[in-house]
Computed example of a mutant assay.
Amino acid sequence: MTQIQPVLLAAGQSRRFGENKLLADFCYAGVTAPLLAHSLQPWLQQFERVLVVVPMIYQPLQKALQTALNDDYHRLDWLPSAQAEAGMGHSLADAVSATAEAEGWLIGLADMPLLPTEAIAGVADLLKQGAVLAAARYMQRQGHPVGFSSQFYSALSILQGDSGGRHLLKQHHAAIQFFDCQHPGVLTDVDTPQALQALQASAAISTSG
């Protein structure tokens, strides 16, 4: 079976949020926990282990997740990124370089707490079936997660800056195989406190209906 490495990028600086947004409380399905804990849940439902890329000082994240995830906490592999402050590209390059034996990488963002499990499973399946690039999509809009086959190892391992793998997806757009999802969570991330409040309100409506 094709070995797909799940990667959650959690090394951002949260500059627009004003503090580490991944530690902010978020309530979903009646459970209040750090934002990162909710973002991790669908990944832990699909994979036995998940690689989490973090800044060099990440002990507060560890402490928060030990409480929130309980036994599932031990299924996380932590990868500190020395150049995380320079942008997402460095974090992604570090993750790919550290797992060079993988046959593909499934990349997610740590500030997407409503990402549906089906999107993760769907994009992973496309990679396993031979897609060189794959991504979730909602109403014709490309979202996350995104998947890269080992064909892109060299390009991914030298990424820099804050664009992550976006330029690769744009450059090779015709090669992307999409998993069409019926949930807007594949597009929804959190950058500001206002965005978190709006997402919390939306989540409350969706779980009460």
Rank of each mutant, 00 (worst) to 15 (best):
M112H: 04
L61D: 02
P113S: 07
L51Y: 01
R15F: 14
A24E: 13
L156S: 02
A124Y: 05
Q182L: 05
A124N: 10
P116Q: 00
V53W: 06
F152G: 09
H172C: 01
S81K: 00
M56T: 11
H144S: 09
Q45G: 05
A11S: 10
D162I: 13
F152Q: 00
D111S: 11
M1G: 02
L61P: 00
L92E: 15
I176Y: 07
G89T: 01
Q151G: 10
N20E: 13
L114H: 01
P193V: 11
L92D: 03
S14N: 03
H90P: 06
P145A: 03
T32E: 04
L40P: 08
Q13H: 03
W78A: 15
Q62M: 12
W43C: 00
H173K: 15
A195G: 14
A119I: 04
L76C: 04
D189S: 05
L23D: 08
I176N: 06
H183M: 01
G130F: 03
Q140A: 09
G209V: 05
M112P: 15
A93T: 15
Y138C: 02
G130C: 13
D180T: 09
W78C: 06
V96L: 15
L115K: 01
V96R: 07
A174D: 02
L187E: 01
L36Y: 05
S81G: 08
M139W: 10
L196R: 08
Q200C: 03
Q59V: 08
S97Y: 03
Y73M: 09
V132A: 15
A204E: 14
